[in-house]
Every structure is written in structure tokens, then in C-alpha cells.
Simulated assay, not measured.
Amino acid sequence: MEFISEDGKTLDQQCSTLVLPALSIGNVGQLGVDLLISSTRAQRIGYLDDPNVLPCVGNDAYTPSLKPQLALSLEAYDSSSNSLTFVQQRSPVVKGMMLEYAKNLADFAAANGKKHVVVLSSLDFGRWQTIDMSSGLQIYYLSSANMDGTDDDCERLGWKRLQEYNPAQRRWKYLDDLAEGKMVQEDTSTFEDDMQDEDYLPSLPFAAMFSCFKAKGLKVTCLLCYCSEGDNMPDSFQLAEAASKLVGLRDTDIQGNEGGKWTIPFSWQSVYGPPADMSIF
């Protein structure tokens, strides 16, 4: 993975916390990072080139301008006033290369002085085993602070540790061994041929990131919510709110528009495409 700076800008070494998405159902993690970047007025400082991420290019995601910046597959943003670095991922990872991508991200984070990594992602509502909607949508977390995935800070914020996480489970152990560079004899095809319910979570991108960041000695916290495909903007607001609390953002650190707390990214105006041509009715 190579970092290419933009117009002579460099990564701020004082930005010790890295926030990034792990792609999953509804792209909630990406939408949450969008909100955080636009609302903290983070500045793009460059982009990352990784052979494991499919290339893409698009219009400026955040600002309408006569001289817009093109949006690329992997972009890096700094919010120096909040000591935050964001990495936004806009295209999928090449099939079968998720672990290599996660290792490259971990190397990038460690080499640039990051101490805490916050991963935003989503889980399939259809696989939610213990459904409790009494308190509305619930944030779940997984942390490297303790061996069992618990974290006192997350508990104080009222979140629940991901109940299905079991570090002794075969696929979690397999991920940890690969992330730590240990020789592993087991063929990955055995997982695909004999996929069990307990293998679902460690098969997701956030799990590979969790293992690889942890193997680099970085503290990593995954913030997760269950959702379904559809209009996932409400889920992204929830996830962004959770991330802002975890990294200590105050209301004054977030600039909203149209009287709201958050600044809605410009690109969200075209999420569902242009309105229907009324002449056809």
C-alpha cells in the first residue's frame, strides 16, 4: 500500500486515531465515515494505492465546486483539530484478498503513528440471534482492549459487546494466526465447504481488520449495527454518533447544516438517482 500525498500535504503525526469503514451490508460504515468527514470539515491529504482494492473514480463527494476534486477508491483525510485521520473506501476488495488488504492497512496505520483504530461496519439483520429492540437500534462493539473483546469505555457508553465473538472459535483463531504471520496448515477451502453459523462473523471484512490491527499492537475498536439493505442513512447517523462519542468529539467539533447536527455530504443528493420524469405519468 502506497500513500500519495496531495499538493505537498502530509499525514499529521498528531492525529493518533484512525477511523475507517469495513464494507458490509448497506455500506453503513462508508456512509458513517462520510458524515464524519463532512461534519468535521476534514481535509483530504492524499490517497492510498493498494493492489487489492478495485479502482474507481467519481465526482467530488463532499462539495459542489467549479473545480471539484475527483473521488478515488481509497482516500485519506485529516481533522488535525480533532486529532483524527479518516480513510474512506469507495470500492470493494478483490475477492480472496481481504486479509492482504487488512495487513496493508495495519502496516500503514502503524507506520504513521496511529494508536487507536476505529472500524465502522454493519451486520446482516437476518442473522441477529438475540433480538432486543426495547431500546431502539443498538450499537455493538468488539475491542482489543481485553482478550474477550470487552472494553470498559464502550460499556460506559451503553454498548453491548458482540455476543457471538469467541476468540477460541476456529475461524477467529485462523485469522489471528494469519495476521501474526504464523504458519497455518488448514486450507481456506475447508471453511467455504463447511460454513457454519459461527463462521459468519469472522468471514466478514471487519474481522480481518480487527485481527490485523491487533497483531500490529494497535488498539482497535469495531463499532457495529445490524441492518438490512435499503435506505441505510438512519443507520449511518447512529454509527457516526457512536464513533463521535468514542473518539471524544464535542458538539462544537461537529458542524451541521440546515439546522441539524451533521453536515449531509453533497454526494448523498444523488443516492437514489434523479427524480422520475413526471411526463411519463
Rank of each mutant, 00 (worst) to 15 (best):
E2D: 13
T10S: 11
Q13E: 12
Q13R: 14
V19Y: 05
L23W: 05
S24Q: 13
L31T: 05
V33K: 00
L35A: 05
L36R: 06
S39E: 07
A42E: 10
N52P: 10
L54W: 00
V57H: 00
N59F: 04
A61C: 01
T63M: 07
S65Q: 01
Q69G: 06
L70M: 14
L72W: 12
S73D: 03
E75M: 14
S83C: 09
T85E: 02
Q88P: 06
S91F: 10
P92Q: 04
V93Q: 02
G96R: 03
M97G: 04
Y101G: 00
K103H: 09
N104P: 03
N104S: 12
A110P: 03
A110H: 11
N112H: 14
V117Q: 01
V117T: 08
S122Y: 06
T130Q: 13
M133V: 15
G136C: 09
L137R: 11
Y141G: 05
M147W: 07
D152A: 12
R156T: 12
L157Y: 07
K160L: 13
L162K: 00
Q163D: 06
E164K: 05
Y165V: 09
Q169R: 10
R171Q: 12
L175T: 03
L175G: 03
L178E: 00
G181T: 08
G181V: 11
M183L: 12
V184H: 09
Q185C: 06
S189P: 00
F191E: 05
E192P: 00
D194Y: 09
D197H: 02
E198W: 06
L201W: 07
L201R: 04
L204I: 10
P205Y: 02
S211I: 12
K214F: 03
K216P: 10
T221A: 01
C222P: 09
C227Q: 06
P234A: 02
D235E: 06
Q238E: 11
L239G: 11
E241I: 02
L246M: 09
L249H: 01
T252H: 02
D253W: 06
G256A: 01
G256H: 03
N257I: 14
G259S: 04
K261I: 15
I264W: 00
P265K: 04
F266Q: 06
M278Y: 13
